[in-house]
């Protein structure tokens, strides 16, 4: 159970990216965060694993306030939270295998990793994960040599290497075409269903939201403006969606024919 209480983030330049946001995510949930570009989705996700320090509020996870953690404790907590990024954020000049093993850094001893030494168990786990994501044959390629869809699978694999209990996915499919988007989200859905991994994922398209989410929250200018269950979101019409979301909201199926998916909501 993840519980966000009164979370506020004000950036150094004064931008109030999150304003008193509270919600909770039961274990095993596939929570989708929707909202316009600039509404604070990335900020919210980055606050949870403390890539960004929140200005105020609590992030209670397994009885611990993540917002207060420092140093070693923070790193220990981060190990259990995987993260997937819109632009994959792979180390492009490293191999796929190395990118996966990076996911084990939090568990490994520091000095062996300085020499790129990982335990046999870690290596086996990497190969198993690659096999699970169907990219075994790419293991020794440089990450930048892969296609977008493959790169995102590496991104998910890296997060899986952490043995996460929570997965944060910040617009994981916004840089991909619709077919790939479904394929990546299906991977996440599998993890959610089979591994009972809690997932918090920001998405843009109503049909993707309806298809994959088990619950939804909506952000607008840093405020929490919508909270809905799967049922509620299923019944939602485009017009309702737009009132929460903004005029730009579209279904991915509307845009796929024009091939301009990535530009619908610009990041």
């Amino acid at each position: 159970m993840l519980e966000i209480r009164n979370l506020t983030k004000i950036y150094e330049d004064g931008t109030k990216a999150l304003d008193n946001v509270s919600f909770s995510v039961p274990d095993g949930e596939f929570l989708v965060v929707i909202g316009l570009s600039g509404s604070g989705k990335s900020t919210l996700l980055r606050c949870i694993n403390r890539l960004i320090d929140p200005t105020d509020g609590e992030i209670i996870w397994n009885g611990e306030d993540l917002a207060k953690l420092q140093g070693e404790d923070l790193r220990k907590a981060r190990r259990k939270i995987g993260m997937v990024f819109q632009h994959f954020n792979l180390v492009e000049r490293s191999t796929v295998l190395t990118n996966l093993l990076t996911g084990r850094l939090g568990y490994a001893k520091t000095w062996p990793t300085m020499l790129h030494r990982f335990s046999k168990a870690d290596r086996d786990k990497a190969w198993a994960t690659l096999a699970r994501m169907g990219i075994e044959d790419q293991a020794h390629k440089l990450a930048r040599e892969l296609s977008g869809g493959q790169q995102q699978r590496v991104g998910i694999s890296r997060a899986l290497m952490q043995d996460p209990e929570l997965m944060l996915a910040d617009e994981p499919v916004a840089s991909l075409d619709p077919v790939l988007a479904h394929s990546i989200l299906q991977h996440l859905e599998n993890l959610n269903k089979e591994d009972e991994l809690t997932i918090i994922c920001s998405l843009h398209y109503l049909d993707l939201v309806q298809r994959y989410s088990t619950s939804v929250i909506g952000l607008r200018e840093g405020h929490l403006v919508y909270q809905g269950t799967k049922k509620e979101i299923q019944k939602m019409t485009d017009d309702e969606f737009k009132t929460i979301y903004g005029e730009e909201a579209v279904r991915i199926s509307d845009t796929s024919l024009e091939g301009s998916v990535g530009e619908v909501v610009e990041e």
């Binding site: 890539l51 954020n89 180390v91 300085m114």
Partner: peptide, 21 residues
């Protein structure tokens, strides 16, 4: 590119590991 650094940081890596990887 700060992206990969952020990603390595998110795995729970420490400072040395972030620099190295």
């Amino acid at each position: 590119d700060p992206g990969p650094i952020e990603a390595v940081q998110a795995t729970g890596a420490n400072w040395f590991q972030i620099v190295m990887f």
